[in-house]
Design a protein around this nucleic acid. Structure first.
Lengths: 211, 211
DNA sequence: CTTTCCCGACCGGTCGTTCGGTTCCCATTT
DNA sequence: AAATGGGAACCGAACGACCGGTCGGGAAAG
C-alpha cells in the first residue's frame, strides 16, 4: 500500500541509481547503447536530461554499473558448490544450467553484456572479464574431455565456444512470462548442449585406463 | 582477375561501391554501425567525407547493401538441392552445414547482419528477412521431429533456436586463416548441433543411412 | 572533352555534459 | 503540531564538439 497512491495520479517516484539503471538498460537494449541519447534516456525516465547526472557521473558510468551487475552474477555461479566439486561432466552441467538461470534472472543486464564489442574502456574491461568466465568453461570442457566423455576429434576449445554460443543466444529471444520456466529452459539447454558435444554412438570410450 | 592489381604498391586505387563497402563493413563491425561516423569511415578509406556520397546516397544505404549481400547468400542456401530433397534430417544437416560455410565465406556481412537490432527501416527490413530464414529452419526441425528423430519432449521451435544460436555464434570468434577450414568447421558444428537435439540414447533412427 | 571520382568548406541539428538555481522529503527542533 | 534546516532530487538553458549530409569546383581517367 505504500506503492498504491490514493490520488489516482500516475506516480512519479523519485529515482535512485538502481531504479534509473533499470530504465537505462531497457533503453540500451532496445536502441543500442551508442544509439541511445541522454535525451531519450531522460524522456524514458520522465526526467530532465540534467537530472540523470545526479545519479551517474556519465553515460559510460551507467553502462559500467549494468555490465558489472551481469558479470558479478555470472562469476558467482563459478563459486557455487556444484561447479567446484564432483566429476567434470557434472560440474559442467551445473555451470551451464546455472548460467542459463542467471541469464534469465538478470536478462537485461546479461543481454547488454553479450552485446558489448569493446568500443570504450568500460567495454574492454567487461570484455576481458567475460573472457575469463569463458575460459573457465573451456577448462571444464577440457577436463570433461580427459575423462573420455567428449566426442572424438572435437577440440575442447571449439566445444566450449559452441556451448557458450548456444547458451548465450538464449538472451536474444527469451522473454519472461513465456511457457517455459527458467529452470526448465536451463535443464533442457544444458542437456542439449552437453549431449551435442558428448560421444556420438559408443557410450563406452575405449580406455581411459585407471588413473 | 578483377582482383589482380598489377601494381605491387599499396595502391589507393579509386573506389567503386563494392570496394568501399568492404572498408565500411569492416568499420561497422569494429565500432558498431551507429558508433561509426562518416568521418571515421572516410579516413579508413583514405577519402574525404563527401567522396563517400558519390558511391552511396546515405549511410543507411551502405548498411542496406551489406545486409542484402548477407541475406542473399543465406537464402541461396535454401534453394540448394540438398536443402530441398531427401529426408528431413539430411536436409537439416545440409542446411546447417552450408549456413556455416556461407557465414564463414561472407563473414563480415553476416556478422553485421547478426548484430542488427531494428533501429531503422533498413534494420527492420533485414530483421524480418532473417526471421523468414529462421522460420524455414524451424520448419525443418519440426519435420525432423515428425520422423521421430528429435529428442523426446524437446519443442521443435526451441530446438531450432538453440541450433541457430549455436551456429550464428560462430561469427563472434571465427577468423579466417585459423587452423580450422570452413568446411571442417561446418561439418563439426552441424554434427554437434544435430546430435544435441536428437534422441538421447540413440535408438538407431530407422531411415537415413547417412550417405 | 566528357565522365567519373574526389575534395574543402559549410549547413542545421544533435551529442554528452555543465551550471546555477529550485523543489521536495523528512528528521530534528521548538 | 508547527517550524526549520539541509541534503537529495530535479530542472531549463547553454556549451563546444561533432553528427550526417550538401554544394560547387578541381583532378584524372578514357
Amino acid at each position: 500500500m505504500a506503492d498504491g497512491v490514493g490520488g489516482g495520479q500516475i506516480k512519479r517516484p523519485r529515482y535512485d541509481p538502481d531504479r534509473l539503471l533499470e530504465v537505462a538498460v531497457q533503453q540500451f537494449i532496445h536502441r543500442g547503447y551508442e544509439a541511445t541519447s541522454m535525451a531519450q534516456l531522460a524522456k524514458a525516465a520522465g526526467l530532465g536530461k540534467s537530472s540523470i547526472y545526479h545519479h551517474f557521473p556519465s553515460k559510460e558510468a551507467i553502462l559500467h554499473r549494468a555490465l558489472s551487475r551481469a558479470l558479478d552474477a555470472l562469476f558467482a555461479v563459478l563459486e557455487e558448490e556444484g561447479a567446484r566439486l564432483g566429476p567434470p561432466a557434472a560440474r559442467l552441467e551445473h555451470l551451464l544450467r546455472r548460467t542459463v538461470e542467471v541469464l534469465v534472472l538478470e536478462l537485461p543486464y546479461v543481454t547488454l553484456l553479450l552485446r558489448v564489442r569493446g568500443n570504450s574502456k568500460t567495454e574492454l574491461w567487461a570484455l576481458e572479464r567475460r573472457r575469463h568466465f569463458d575460459r573457465r568453461v573451456a577448462e571444464l570442457v577440457a577436463a570433461t574431455a580427459s575423462t573420455g566423455v567428449l566426442r572424438q576429434g572435437l577440440d575442447p576449445g571449439l566445444g566450449a565456444r559452441l556451448l557458450l554460443g548456444m547458451v548465450n543466444s538464449i538472451s536474444e529471444w527469451y522473454r519472461p512470462g513465456g511457457p517455459l520456466s527458467a529452470a526448465d529452459l536451463a535443464r533442457v539447454a544444458a542437456s542439449v548442449g552437453l549431449h551435442g558435444i558428448s560421444g556420438q554412438r559408443g557410450p563406452a570410450p575405449p580406455g581411459p585406463p585407471a588413473r
